[in-house]
Design a protein around this nucleic acid. Structure first.
Lengths: 341, 341
DNA sequence: GTGAAAGCGCTAACAT
DNA sequence: ATGTTAGCGCTTTCAC
């Protein structure tokens, strides 16, 4: 079933069929109708390869992310995919893992597939890392980053102001009298750095305890091992009598681990130690007590990313914001209820 | 940069270039070398559309799943994607949601994109549901289902024997003296039915309590709401004095909800009520106490699915098993430790 | 408004 | 072992 068959059936040329296929106005309503119904009857679908050859596009967007099995990335992929599909764009998914060489390789692969654009999910690309491959790629097609910032031509960043989010969380705690706040984090991606800076900023502003033991890094594996690691570290800090009266973690998983340590020590019974996570994943709900968490608004970032992408693909690139920033949202649950003002 | 440029640069014909591109043996090592290095220098990549046009394939596999934001599906997608990519196959991801009309539509979309095969993840397609669209699609390309069973030509199912898994879990509990075992489930997909049957089977075998209140269905939303629902139902059962001494749930999320209810009532303190979940997701680790869970071996099913797919795509279809079944694995954690024999 | 025809970059059958 | 050439199904000038 090709354009030729339809043309023959309608007694018109393939050019005309192609025109109705592409919604050209230069077709009489009558012919259009005839062709359309023929297509319907024979239930014809245009060959995407042939189309791609001519247009050099298959209406496909490449999604690059470190690992969809991570709840956070999975949610983002899900939201982005849904919105892209609404606009008739398909999604090629490519999970790179954490190795830079893989990231480069998969980026090349995506480029060689002639995708129309690339969406980078999460902030797998650390600032200190070599981003030249992205810069290079951006010369060929637009790149959108979701919650990662790369300021280069033809790269558009949709981000959540997590720095301010963490800063405000610490602020809330500080205003309630907490002086020593434990901060657990996993990685120094763009997002990770922002959060850490937010913590430091508030510590500075409110003159909080600067004991270096209060800032703990837990190597990220994106598995339950991170939880255990956070639990162990928190346990050690308690055993070593490092004083702290509240905990903030850059990831729900870490926060939950910390909370487990608290629970194990019965600390949570004697004196309530607030715990705040980030990402507001399902995990937050699963923890006991349920975890207060900073939502970084994937539900807003992802549609915004697709929106921006659509504008780029269809419209005037000069009118597109290169950076779009949304505020985070603190979702209060049992592990910490901000005192009402 | 086309095959013509390379041909010119090497002073050979495009056919020769095409041959080295496709690894034909009928090229002298010398010419091959010349062409290869020219490709490298000019850093040429073949146009996938032109290639697709000729071969009617772009080496792309469609993945159909209800929702990647669900941890279980996400893990499967992740595992499948990785293995497919290893073999040079790309992945078009398509999330359908739960509406049948969407499933049909997205399946058609995938077909119209001329993917080489389709992998169905999870068992979103209920048995009682109309599967004719899949049957129809299978006439055009091979379909692999992961943890879903459809017995039709050109549809290959890779499944985990969850029925036996649940049966054995109930058996373990029965042998330890439990008579009334609460079973929480969410959906009646293929997988859901299998588990439920496993429960009933063991109840029958061991003459356990058949009180219908012990089998509770919680409408599935795949969100934290399911957890709350499970918690509420368990709470009600306790309040209504429905006797049960152990809980099994078809999903970790539900098990965790149930466990929360137990914890809230302090039941877990007085008398330890074993809780067993299914899927062995990260959630299991996050719960307190950590959740014993039946792992349905995505880590094995997914590679097996890709393996089967590869065989189909390259080899003799007659030698491919239409059904491949793996045993599940009970991962013991704090919520239930099977008594050693 | 419509048709004829020239590509798009590649594969594969057929020659040599 | 290598070259020639006819498609693959569509888009897009360019005529009419």
């Amino acid at each position: 079933m090709t354009i030729y068959d339809i043309a023959k059936a309608c007694d018109v040329s393939i050019a005309t069929v192609s025109r109705v296929l592409n919604g050209s106005t230069k077709v009489s309503p009558k012919t259009r109708e005839k062709v359309l119904s023929a297509m319907n009857e024979q239930n014809y679908t245009p060959n995407p390869f042939a189309r791609g050859l001519g247009l050099n596009s298959m209406k496909m967007i490449g999604i690059l992310c470190t690992d969809v099995s991570d709840a956070y990335f999975a949610k983002a992929v899900s939201l982005v995919e849904r919105d892209l599909r609404k606009r008739g764009l398909d999604v090629i998914l490519s999970c790179t893992g954490n190795e830079l060489s893989h990231k480069k390789k998969y980026l090349q692969l995506l480029l060689s597939k002639h995708v129309d654009a690339i969406i980078l999910i999460g902030s797998p690309f650390r600032e200190e890392m070599d981003n030249s491959h992205l810069e290079e790629a951006a010369k060929k097609l637009p790149i959108i980053t979701i919650n990662g910032l790369i300021e280069r031509p033809n790269i558009y960043s949709i981000i959540c102001d997590e720095k301010d989010g963490v800063r405000r969380s610490v602020e809330l705690l500080a205003k309630e009298g907490h002086k020593s706040i434990l901060y657990l984090y996993d990685s120094l991606t763009y997002s990770g750095k922002q959060k850490l800076e937010g913590y430091h900023l508030a510590v500075e502003t409110y003159g909080l305890d600067k004991n270096p033991a209060l800032v703990q890094r837990i190597p990220r594996t994106l598995t339950a091992a991170d939880l255990i690691a956070a639990e162990n570290i928190t346990q050690q800090l308690i055993e070593n009598k490092i004083p702290f009266s509240a905990i903030i973690a850059s990831e729900d998983l870490l926060a939950i681990g910390a909370q487990k340590a608290l629970t194990a020590f019965g600390k949570n019974k004697r004196k309530h130690i607030p715990v705040i996570g980030c990402n507001n994943s399902v995990l937050a709900e699963c923890s006991t007590p349920s975890l207060t968490s900073m939502d970084n608004r994937l539900d807003v970032l992802c549609p915004a990313a697709v929106e921006t992408l659509t504008k780029i693909l269809t419209g005037d690139v000069d009118l597109i914001p290169s950076k779009t920033i949304f505020p985070p949202l603190l979702i209060a649950r049992d592990s910490y209820q901000p005192r009402k003002e």
